[in-house]
Design a protein around this nucleic acid. Sequence first.
DNA 1: TTTATTTCCGTGTGCGCACACGGAAATAAA
DNA 2: TTTATTTCCGTGTGCGCACACGGAAATAAA
Lengths: 361, 361
Amino acid sequence: MTPVSPDKIKITDIARAANVSPGTVDRVLHGRGEVAEKTKKKVLSVIEKLGYKPNLLARSLATKKSFRFVSLLPEHRPGEYWESPEKGIDKAREEIRLYNVSVEKMYFDQFDAQSFVAASESLIAFKPDAALIAPMFRNDAVLLTERLLRNRIPCVYIDSNAEDEHYLSYFGQHSYQSGYVAARLTETGLPPGSEILMVRTIRISGTSNQIERREDGFSAYFRDKGLTDKYRLIRTKLSVDNDSDNRKELTAVFEKHRNIRAAVVFNSRAYQLADILNKLKIKNIKLIGYDLSGDNIARLKDGSISFLIAQRPEEQGYRGIMALCDRVVFNGEINRINYMPIDIIAKENVDYYETTPRANA
Amino acid sequence: MTPVSPDKIKITDIARAANVSPGTVDRVLHGRGEVAEKTKKKVLSVIEKLGYKPNLLARSLATKKSFRFVSLLPEHRPGEYWESPEKGIDKAREEIRLYNVSVEKMYFDQFDAQSFVAASESLIAFKPDAALIAPMFRNDAVLLTERLLRNRIPCVYIDSNAEDEHYLSYFGQHSYQSGYVAARLTETGLPPGSEILMVRTIRISGTSNQIERREDGFSAYFRDKGLTDKYRLIRTKLSVDNDSDNRKELTAVFEKHRNIRAAVVFNSRAYQLADILNKLKIKNIKLIGYDLSGDNIARLKDGSISFLIAQRPEEQGYRGIMALCDRVVFNGEINRINYMPIDIIAKENVDYYETTPRANA
DNA sequence: TTTATTTCCGTGTGCGCACACGGAAATAAA
DNA sequence: TTTATTTCCGTGTGCGCACACGGAAATAAA
């Protein structure tokens, strides 16, 4: 509560030092043209010399611009994974509201590629100033981002990386490495000779490459460490919804492989496997899964799941939106690839895991 | 880039609706008095009805107030633990500079209680508007915060919780629970009959209660799970600096206890134990430690350390300062206890662990 | 009742910037 | 050389708020 801070130079200081009017400084700052080359150079050199930094508060207050962002996520129900990224988006939205940024939320059905295409059309028609996208359908996502790019609309991907060149920035996990971590957790303390069950859930529209790369990383760990003789990797597939088929399949697998001591599920449905194993009375299986959905947390707490790997989904949404804001509103630079931490969650630390980015003023 | 956002109500809207002048609304908003009781009620009801939210940008721009914060941390060198909280403080400082908040950094010697007392005097003399403190010397920290409280200066603790009533808010780990997590990691895959070495580093001015509670949590895990027959906990003490004494001590311990298969160090010096074990050619010890100092990370990567438990030190500093800002600058409410996640770090995920809170505009 | 005091409130200015408007100077066209 | 056009720049206003100032109305003191 002392007197106001000193030595902040402002546009009028620049103007005085450069012998021009504030209006001219403004034109130079915004590259609006209508300034003689000589004058422009003079002003720029003064700006440089005095180290002028615009007051973002005043700028936002004065500007009449507003910005419309769009997010495109899978539809979801309470407790499901996608609730978390959306929470992060909401938090960011609240924080940048004062900068005249609005965020319109759009959705698609994650089991229906056609719904993604339809949503893409709506998104394009909306003419947003920026977009945050969960590119679950690789090809359609690329088509969408190509069109956005053509209109100079920046685009951030979260969750899974489509590996094309059409997005501004990616916030998500390094899937391959997360598989490596899953393998490390699986191996720790596992008796030699054990068999390890790798579970893939069949999806209607094909497995995402995110899941595939988790599996790749997982397998690679055992190869890289020369553990392929010590352990044996068994693969099986489960259906998303057909419970009785799944039981039959697993019964057969465990019949055939008597030494399965660990199992890994590479999507967020580890709870499904936990439930089936419970029903089949198969015990003492070390189960590793992904993502902190409500169901997974419950199984983690009751001991059916040993470890879950998390990827700060809220932070993905939050930082994705903030990056777009930095870019569009403040003309900042954004890191292209932003890998999230690969968080290891056990029963003992799950209650203290909060992905929530801080709320600020 | 569409027209400016609508329906934002401002002070003049309140004034019109309440049949008063903007100045009167302002007096009510700030509780400056000089308003008749009846008028005040009228204005408040209109504010309520229209759901007025002040524009923080305009408020900060218009206000002539400025705020001086102080941080009080242990001195440290590059790569050491305390660099991280300081990084978070710097980040927060940058973000709230526009709100006329400055952060003055003060330091003490973490091995010299007297230096903390001296720093306390400087801090008080500085008359800050808020303080962020690492309360490593419990009693002296309490004395300091009592004096701050008397002057109505809000005070945030980070890292360790002194458990008194004199601070506004705490950002740090639940130490007891983090010991529990350490125990879980230690136990996973450990052969029955193993002995577990619990290492305490002797400090000149007594062990902090943070460390003690980690130990408590660790021991409690084995009791709670009924594992006291299965494993045996061995305790030993090491000196901070006397390497040869430490070697002798450890040689004797391992001489006596032939079944030690795991060791835990409860402060950030796990690398010290790793180095001694290397020199003594003691192998195959599963080593668990705390905090991502440069030395610890190196040992994690070369395999001497199995797991480290981290506590988002940058986030502690960042959120601590931001909380003070919310409170002092924006009159917000702050959560009193803010436990950090208990992060599990292994060789496989350490490169993706960033505690850095996002940089924003 | 008159004057002094207090209570209460409205008006005006500035925070640092964006941006519209209009006009002088320089240049091009007649 | 005169007029039309373009280039270039300065001035003025408003964003939403905090806060100083001063004055009218109400009350207290004389």
